[in-house]
């Protein structure tokens, strides 16, 4: 299969080497997840078309790559769901990865090791390439739906009603997803960047 066919609508992006590399990584990831290379090709192609529609919003390549993988993971979950015909309820469980322990105990209070700590001079840290790599890693570790809504809201700067329309979720659901995404991302940045000895 020719990558040029897939990427032709994206001629605006001049970095075709970068895009080809991301496509290769996406394909590798999709084959691992789906165990079926022709299905993986379809899913990646689908995700590329979806992702590149918004590419003009991303001047940074790390951000574009995170966005492409967020779309890809959603497409993979969709594809597994279709194949195995699991219910909407099971799908929600799968998407949210609720097996991971949240930051709150069963009374809804912060666990001692999850509490937000003071972040020293956060804006100065925004300048460095090292920070952006940590940010991209934390974003990539979010469950697929969370990373996608977070990017739509905070990176693409879409309004909540636009996101609800695009993803066919209710406003209530969107607020839950954004809350979880912000909690996770905050925790990841604290652990991997702001904590003593993280850098």
């Amino acid at each position: 299969m020719s990558a040029d066919v897939v990427l032709s609508p994206a001629a605006k992006i001049d970095d075709s080497v970068f895009l080809e590399e991301v496509r290769r990584q996406m394909l590798q990831f999709a084959v691992q997840q789906l165990g079926d290379s022709s299905l993986a090709e379809d899913v990646v192609q689908d995700a590329l078309v979806g992702a590149l529609r918004n590419q003009k919003s991303f001047k940074g390549r790390a951000a574009l790559r995170s966005w492409m993988f967020a779309i890809l993971k959603n497409k993979i979950v969709d594809s597994i769901r279709r194949k195995s015909r699991i219910s909407a309820h099971e799908e929600q469980i799968m998407r949210d990865e609720i097996d991971r322990a949240g930051p709150f105990d069963n009374r809804g209070h912060w666990r001692p090791d999850s509490q937000p700590q003071h972040w020293a001079q956060p804006d100065e840290t925004l300048m460095g390439a090292d920070f952006w790599r940590v940010f991209a890693i934390c974003l990539d570790h979010l469950p697929p739906r969370q990373s996608r809504v977070f990017m739509m809201r905070e990176v693409l700067e879409l309004e909540t009603d636009e996101i609800c329309l695009a993803l066919e979720v209710t406003a209530a659901n969107l607020h839950v997803l954004l809350h979880r995404a912000r909690l996770e991302l905050r925790a990841c940045l604290q652990k991997c960047w702001f904590a003593e000895g993280a850098r």
Binding site: F18, S57, K59, G60, R61, L126, F135
Partner: peptide, 25 residues
């Protein structure tokens, strides 16, 4: 603490879109 970090998260996300960092460096 969580409340003061939310605006930072937003600024970071917006700057991320524009930061030209090669993830494969």
């Amino acid at each position: 603490g969580f409340q003061t970090q939310m605006p930072f998260l937003r600024r970071a996300a917006r700057a991320f879109a524009k930061a030209d960092v090669d993830p494969q460096a």
